[in-house]
Amino acid sequence: MATVGERALAEGRPTARRRTWWQQLRRSDAGVALLFLLPNLLGFLVFTARAVIEAFRLSFYRADLLTPEVWVGLSNYQRLLFNDELFRKVLVNTAYYTFGSVPLAIIVGLLLAVLVNTQLRGITVFRTAFFMPVVSSVVAVSLLWQWLYNSDFGLINEALRAIGLRNPPIWLSDPRWAMPALIIMSVWRQAGYNMVLFLAGLQGVPVHLYEAAEIDGANRWQRFWSITLPMLSPTTFFVLVISIIGSFQVFDQALILTNGGPADATHTVVMFIYNQGFQYFKMGYAAAVAWILFALIFLLTLFQWRYQRQWVHYE
């Protein structure tokens, strides 16, 4: 995309400087882009930006939205960062969930994509099947998994008993197993989505690269490692960024599968915000948590953006 200056030069009109910002905006691509973005931007400004700013203001108050607000300065943040044991726990839980589920969902999604990236007859049936969990309702999926995880009659424990395990875990009632259970379910749900993205990436890898490698005598594994993976890295980067943001905001499946329990083992940051704000009426406190979460996600994304040069290859 040519910048304003470049275009003015190309058209041989050196008068760009004399134009007002308005004229510039009208003539430039940026103006057109802005126009196309405007409907969405308006919605964002009215419904999101306003609420975000209001939440920032609230985070310095003790507020329940019903009785008069009390200015408390930084004490909400201070309490959260230094004095709230439960907040520390939900942060650790959320990190556990993120670093457990994201890599697994990426690896499984990539494997599925490689598997279904063939021209076999009926392959679309498999692609659809792997994608089904993504479009199923979270509530239905979570209730289904509650049954799978049932310690006495669930399929998972039946299978474990069949292979000789006498005391399989009580999954959702054991603080040590509840988070792995949640992660397994999330990977199952998320992998199909990643698969579709990787599939699109795989089909964009030029065939001539593989042909050249084959002539050079590279085996299947070498071709995957030296061509597929690097060529997919922009997709991987996108999937990674989106997944980390999404998993830091995990809420609904944890709410339905375990309601944050047992013993807060699956209590996540967003659930903490919900409880503080809507159960205990501490809106100011909840708003402060929301801003800490935002800062955290922002920093993580920034970090990934900065270091993508090390491993992401754009053509």
Binding site: A263, D264, Q279, Y280
Partner: peptide, 22 residues
């Protein structure tokens, strides 16, 4: 009392460790 729900949830969560035997 106004903080009853928070205190009760805290105790519910605590006892869940006893129920699970940890």
């Amino acid at each position: 009392f106004p903080k009853a729900a928070e205190a009760l949830n805290t105790m519910n969560s605590g006892w869940e460790q006893v129920w699970a035997g940890t």
